[in-house]
Design a protein around this nucleic acid. Structure first.
Length: 301
DNA sequence: AAGAACTCCTGTTGGC
DNA sequence: TGCCAACAGGAGTTCT
């Protein structure tokens, strides 16, 4: 499920349960997810406090008092359930004795000193976890090559032109390339291109002028990427109130996508009248409106 | 060396 | 109802 807004929503949901609490017990219920768990995983986590919870791109990082960071990636189907302690959060050490039985694909269980229980569930097991010394996190193979965070000021017209300039790979593929922009996935790549009126098949290099300066559509694309991510974050955040029962997908279904997964439906643009089409790029479905995102409009903007 | 194809795994959906 | 193929929000590796 997770692209950047979903991962950030999950991080915020985990925060009250994990930040400041110690991991009393870690139950690792199989030897691997996408990769084998780190050596002595349980021993290296148990007894240590979660000093902070961060996010980089689609990774969640729990900084531990041991000096290591627990790095977690949700892959395609990873999700967390957060079970509140019986009697509320003001009763440290009280466990939810009536915790429901574990479910299929529950792979890791964290029991925390504040009574919360956090369960990682991942049917497809494309997710993974690792432990990395704090000082090596930024230079780790996971994070070192990641591109810019798309939520902040780093995503500017100039940045887009610099990253995409000269590339002949399709715009859609460039948006999915985590080495360029870190955090976009298939949904928001489709949605952003629709909002910007850009042809997913157009070469990424059109965002830069011949002299390398950003084209007008680079500013537009940067803006709509930020917009669509912020809107998705708000949709996720709106459900955070009862995140104690969250499964990570909360907020997700509230989104109303303009093109994603809407093949054959009318284009959402007023007066357009065309229908959303689907094509496959680099093995992934691209949804778009051939009228609103025509090559002519793409070049014109 | 860029870009596309293939790969991991399981669950869901849609067609017949 | 069963059966089977296609597809799924990610991303590393392997090909051309």
């Amino acid at each position: 499920m997770p692209e950047l807004p979903e991962v950030e929503t999950v991080r915020r949901g985990l925060e009250p349960a994990m930040t400041g609490a110690s991991v009393l017990r870690l139950d690792q219920r199989r030897k691997d997810l996408r990769f084998v768990f780190p050596e002595r995983f349980r021993e290296r986590v148990e007894g240590h406090r979660v000093v902070g919870l961060r996010r980089r791109a689609k990774y969640i990082l729990a900084d531990l008092s041991s000096g290591e960071a627990l790095l977690m990636h949700l892959g395609m189907s990873g999700r967390f359930r957060v079970l509140a302690p019986k009697g509320g959060t003001q009763r440290p050490g009280k466990f939810h004795h009536e915790a429901p039985a574990l479910e299929k694909h529950d792979h890791v269980v964290f029991d925390l000193s504040n009574g919360y229980r956090v369960i990682y569930n991942d049917a497809r097991r494309f997710g993974f976890m690792d432990l990395i010394p704090e000082g090596d996190v930024a230079s780790s193979a996971y994070l070192a090559g990641l591109g810019i965070e798309p939520l902040g000021n780093a995503l500017s017209a100039e940045a887009l032109a610099g990253l995409f300039g000269g590339r002949r790979t399709p715009l859609k593929a460039a948006l999915l390339d985590q080495r360029l922009i870190a955090g976009l996935g298939n949904i928001y790549a489709c949605e952003a291109l629709f909002r910007a009126g850009l042809d997913p098949c157009a070469p990424a290099g059109i965002l830069a002028l011949p002299d390398g300066a950003p084209a007008a559509k680079a500013a537009l694309l940067a803006q709509v990427i930020r917009d669509v991510l912020h809107e998705a974050l708000e949709a996720g955040g709106s459900t955070l109130r009862d995140f104690a029962h969250a499964d990570g997908s909360l907020g997700y279904f509230q989104h109303r996508f303009k093109v994603y997964d809407r093949e054959g439906e009318p284009c959402a643009a007023p007066g357009c009248g065309d229908r959303v089409q689907r094509l496959v790029q680099a093995g992934r479905s691209t949804f778009f409106c051939a009228t609103c995102q025509s090559p002519a409009r793409t070049l014109g903007g």
